[in-house]
Design a protein around this nucleic acid. Structure first.
Length: 922
RNA sequence: GGGCGAAUAGCUCAGCCGGUCAGAGCGCCUGCCUUACACGCAGGAUGUCGGGGGUUCGAAUCCCUCUUCGCCCACCA
């Protein structure tokens, strides 16, 4: 790479399209993203490992803004730690996404007029496999476009042979521990996907429904009836009882008698069960064990029949134990059509007492949004309570923290009330459940290896038809991607436990909590010590970005228009911890302006800096005699030290300082927006606005001082690029490569994170603050009096009591003059004519003669107003200082600060009075 | 029905343990194409920090309450 010696070789904008891909390829060629197990201290190396496993996107997914955000944050952390000297590993990969992927392929089949049953299981799986192989994993390619520094040599896939082995091992181990069992109960069923769902997969949606009050006449006295309330009249065909509360006086005498079930025309008993809430509706509830989880429990308690009247597709018919319950006219109707018909019949028969509107939460399939049908079936479950205990303990003892902290309460609540996990799915796409049945002797075989015959009787065996919940492989992700169940695997040894898990809060239960439970159960350790939950992206109306609403932003669009760096900077700088980020899908230019502007600014700082510094070798800062440093040099070095400190503080400790999170470090760090702001401020408001401007003259003058300025300039910029690299890796690398003296093959991506500076520069830096104050004062005068830049202004700085300050101002007068386009001299000799006065800290006064420059009359009015306002404020301040209680109770430094302020204000008031006197003649 | 969070400049938000916090970015106003940058420079305006009450010498910051939005959880048929 060449080192351009003038800005003419650098275009005036950074061109991501022409640069980013090339830089990314070179990073990868240099092996910068590849972690080495042997270098981890856990494997005898000398580097602390820092590991993140990516939340594996669905294999068929394409990148959306949520991924853009999530992966940017991970990349910031990974790049930061890599630079900080850790053995940083970011494991990428994809999830086979059972239902989601199967649905995609089924849709393709549907377009051909076929169902999966038409093609058969084997062919369907083959087709899906081919589909995934062909088009899957696109998202991983897309991640490179935003700069994600994943270790692509370790790319994983939940359905790969290696990870499938982990899945089977996990299932068998849980089974052997008695934590996996087969249960016969009512589960959530999606009649469209034709599979069971876990509690988490059956999402509640508020729905405007109706509450139907239906009269069930007493069998032995049709003039009397019990009225039940139901939202789902179609299930009444499966009623086996009506229940009242045992203590409910109103119905006590009816318990044990029978009622006649309308429509079905059969008799069912009245039972007493505490499940019934006497206060709800009429206090009478119909019991339908096969179609309601609670009713199922009641049914079991009372040993009731469990007739199934709705089949797996949601069609009403006599499925099981339901002979004679479904009238012919209802047979074969969809459940919702059946509801209508039943209601009509009830109305016709005079059994419908009333219908009320009813707002309630109805479970829907999280994949296809179909209303879930509770269904009685045999499923595999994981007993979760024993797994939850250590996961709760982890948080209590500080092995784990969740940020922002408010999510910790959610986590605890969920774990404390955890329910068993239905892990079997009636799908074809996924890990086949490793259970075989022998029909000959009824033996159940759960095995790591595929059995060929029944171990007991030698008979033929057949494997369970179901597959595992896709999350059953996801929950092993931190383990399986690192080589588990091979506990000797180099990666597992070197990188497990991992460090930070970055995700949106939406999959806290689906995935994150379960990973923690798996970590403890399978290897006895939490898979990570920090869960970092970020917000989600919303549009300007506050709506969640989604495909269906069409309000999403395609990150690749953004990359194309403003570049990956601008995208990354915008989301990192714009997002508080755990706070949602609002972006306008209709105005990408505006939404990403902060990032775009900053990248351009940085690029231009690079242009002027490189252009002024040239390509000749530059001394390392350490080789510069400290006595040769100017005030400005000290100042920028001091500011750099502050910026580095702020960035480190904002990012926080990468891991618990004492092995466990404590009050001291639990709530610290991961404030990426603060980190971004600290770095931005240094580079823009300090380095560019002040230091670079101040150095231009020195560089032009040449000589020894120019060498010093070059050294400081290059050092400060180099350090700034390092600070910013995790956020905006491309432009910083492109600039860093052009710094003079850059060694071939060295990359910023592999460079060291800035070390804390010394405090050696602070004293001289303070002097430069006085220079800045003088410059600001003169700029303000120019602006206040509307003096155009072209108009030369003579300024006099009248020394104050501070002899040192006067010395500084005298020496720096040329610089102050250059930065303000004024002719500045320091003299006791204040001009006598009308002039503007600005007081500097330390007592010196900037005086600018105004004769011929302004309308004095207007100016006087303005000044008098200013004086009045100041006197008012000063009065209040003095009153405060006269307050006994304030002086005695407030901390000394506060009182001292107020006193100081009063002194300054008084001086300013006196100045202002003089000024008014001088300008306005008394 | 529980639990949690948010309400601060026109917009999106920072403001941790009460006193240099009334701030940033975008937008707006004024003046500048000052040979790095108009995706810029210099200067500037705008907020009784959702309402009410309380604690305190002092509250955007703590407590109570109300209002309005979110989110999560939940077997009230």
């Amino acid at each position: 790479m060449t080192n351009p010696s003038s800005t003419t070789e650098l275009p005036d904008r950074y061109d991501p399209a022409a640069t980013d891909a090339d830089l990314y390829a070179r990073w990868q060629q240099a092996g910068l993203f590849t972690a080495h197990a042997a270098r981890s201290v856990r494997a005898g190396g000398d580097r602390t490992p820092f590991t993140i496993v990516i939340p594996p996107p669905n294999v068929t997914a394409v990148l959306h803004m949520g991924h853009g955000l999530d992966n940017t944050l991970q990349d910031v952390l990974i790049r930061w730690r890599r630079m900080a000297g850790d053995e940083a590993l970011w494991v990428p990969g994809t999830d086979h996404a059972g239902i989601a992927t199967q649905n995609v392929v089924e849709k393709q089949l549907a377009a051909e007029g076929l169902t999966r049953f038409d093609v058969g299981r084997e062919a369907f799986v083959a087709r899906t496999t081919a589909f995934v192989a062909e088009t899957g994993g696109v998202i991983l390619e897309q991640l490179r476009a935003i700069g994600a520094s994943c270790d692509w040599t370790r790319t994983s896939y939940t359905l790969s042979p290696e990870l499938s082995r982990a899945v089977r091992e996990a299932f068998v181990r849980l089974y052997e521990a008695g934590l996996v069992y087969r249960g016969h109960r009512v589960i959530h069923w999606c009649p469209r996907c034709l599979t069971s769902l876990s509690d988490e997969e059956a999402e509640f949606h508020d729905t405007a429904g109706k509450l139907y009050h239906v009269a069930y006449p007493l069998a032995d006295d049709p003039t009397r009836s019990l009225t039940v309330a139901t939202t789902r009249p179609e299930t009444m065909l499966g009623d086996v009882a009506v229940a009242v509360h045992p203590d409910d006086e109103r119905y006590r005498e009816l318990v044990g008698r029978r009622v006649r079930l309308p429509v079905a025309g059969i008799e069912i008993p009245v039972i007493a069960d505490a499940y019934t809430d006497p206060a709800f509706g009429t206090g009478v509830v119909k019991i339908t064990p096969a179609h309601d989880a609670n009713d199922f429990e009641v049914g079991k308690r009372h040993d009731l029949l469990m007739p199934v009247v709705i089949d797996e597709t949601g069609v009403v018919r006599e499925v099981q134990d339901a002979a004679g319950r479904v009238p012919a006219e209802l047979q074969g109707l969809d459940r919702f059509a059946a509801r209508e018909r039943i209601v009509e019949r009830l109305r016709a028969e005079g059994r419908l007492v009333k219908v009320e509107p009813h707002q309630h939460a109805v479970r829907h399939c999280y994949r296809c949004d179909t209303v879930v049908e509770p269904r009685l079936s045999d499923q595999w479950f994981v007993r979760m309570e024993p797994l939850a205990r250590p996961a709760l303990q982890a948080l209590r003892e500080g092995a784990l923290r969740i940020r922002p902290e408010r999510h910790e309460a959610t986590y605890v609540h969920w774990l404390e009330n955890i329910r068993d996990w239905n892990i079997s799915r009636q799908l074809w796409w996924g890990h086949r459940i490793p259970v075989w049945y022998c029909d000959a002797c009824d033996e159940t075989i759960v095995s790591r290896e595929d059995p060929t015959a029944c171990a007991k009787c030698g008979g033929a065996v057949r494997q369970d038809e179901d597959v595992l919940d896709t999350w059953f492989s996801s929950w092993l992700w931190p383990l399986s991607t690192l080589g588990w169940p091979d506990t000797d695997a180099a990666d597992l040894q070197a990188f497990y436990p991992t460090d930070v898990l970055v995700s949106g809060p939406d999959i806290l239960f689906f995935w994150i909590s379960r990973m923690i439970m798996a970590g403890y159960f399978f290897v006895g350790e939490s898979p990570f010590h920090t869960v970092f939950l970020h917000g989600i992206t919303r549009d300007t109306q506050g709506r969640k970005m989604s495909k269906s609403l069409g309000n999403g932003i395609d990150p690749l669009d953004v990359v194309e228009r403003v570049g990956a760096d601008a995208l990354r900077y915008t989301v990192v700088a714009g997002m508080g911890l755990g706070v949602d980020i609002v972006l306008d899908p209709d105005d990408l230019e505006k939404s990403f302006a902060p990032g775009r502007n900053f990248v351009t600014k940085l690029w231009n700082i690079g242009r002027v800096l490189l252009g002024n510094v040239g390509s000749a070798p530059v001394r390392p800062l350490a080789g510069v005699d400290a006595r040769a440093l100017t005030r400005a040099d000290h100042w920028i070095l001091a500011r750099l030290a502050v910026a580095v400190g702020e960035c480190d503080a904002a990012l926080g400790p990468a891991r618990p300082l004492t092995g466990r999170w404590t009050e001291a470090d639990h709530h610290v760090g991961l404030r990426l927006n603060d980190y971004a702001e600290a770095a931005r401020r240094f580079v823009w408001n300090e380095l560019a606005d002040w230091y670079v401007e101040s150095a231009k003259g020195r560089l032009a003058d040449g000589g020894e001082d120019a060498e010093v300025a070059r050294a400081v300039l290059v050092h400060a910029f180099d350090q700034a690029l390092r600070l910013l690299h995790p956020i905006i890796p491309f432009v910083t690398e492109a600039l860093w490569q052009r710094l003079p003296g850059r060694a071939r093959g060295a990359y910023l991506a592999g460079a060291a994170w800035p070390a804390h500076g010394t405090t050696a520069h602070e004293a001289a830096a303070g002097e430069f603050e006085l220079v800045r104050a003088a410059v600001s004062a003169l700029r303000q005068v120019r602006s206040d009096y509307n003096i155009p830049p072209s108009r030369q202004v003579d300024a006099v700085i009248v020394p104050g009591d501070d002899a040192d300050g006067t010395g500084v101002l005298r020496e720096e007068a040329p610089l102050i003059g250059r930065l303000t386009r004024c002719e500045v001299r320091v003299s006791d000799d204040a001009p006598h004519e009308a002039a503007a006065h600005v007081l500097l800290p330390g007592g010196a006064t900037v005086v600018v003669p105004l004769a011929g420059l302004v309308d004095l009359e207007r100016e006087c009015a303005r000044l008098r107003g200013e004086l009045t306002e100041l006197e008012k404020q000063l009065g209040a301040l003095q009153q405060r200082l006269a307050n006994e209680r304030f002086v005695s109770k407030a901390p000394a430094h506060v009182v001292e600060g107020e006193r100081q302020k009063a002194v300054e204000w008084s001086a300013r008031r006196d100045q202002l009075r003089d000024k008014v006197g001088a300008l306005c003649g008394g």
